[in-house]
Amino acid sequence: MLNCRQATQLCSEERDRPLSLRERVALRLHTLICDSCANFRRQMDFLALAARRFREGRRPDGDDE
């Protein structure tokens, strides 16, 4: 069984490499019972989305106060 520290490492790594089946199952089980890590995982999605907006120059313009 994963602890939260290990689960968050996998939440991060799944953005950088394909997880193994065993890792995917373990992470899924953990986030089903742990709200904090489920939040963490969603927030990793959000960070990636924000980074993509930035990378594409799609931040709100500076002159639309």
Binding site: N39, F46, L49
Partner: peptide, 26 residues
């Protein structure tokens, strides 16, 4: 994290309300 690898009480990630709307705010 605590010794056993669980979140400490003050560092538990909370739910973020409507994070995507933040992306349009300077």
């Amino acid at each position: 994290f605590e010794q056993d690898g669980h979140w400490t009480t003050q560092d538990k990630p909370h739910t973020w309300a409507d994070p995507e709307s933040a992306l349009s705010q300077k």
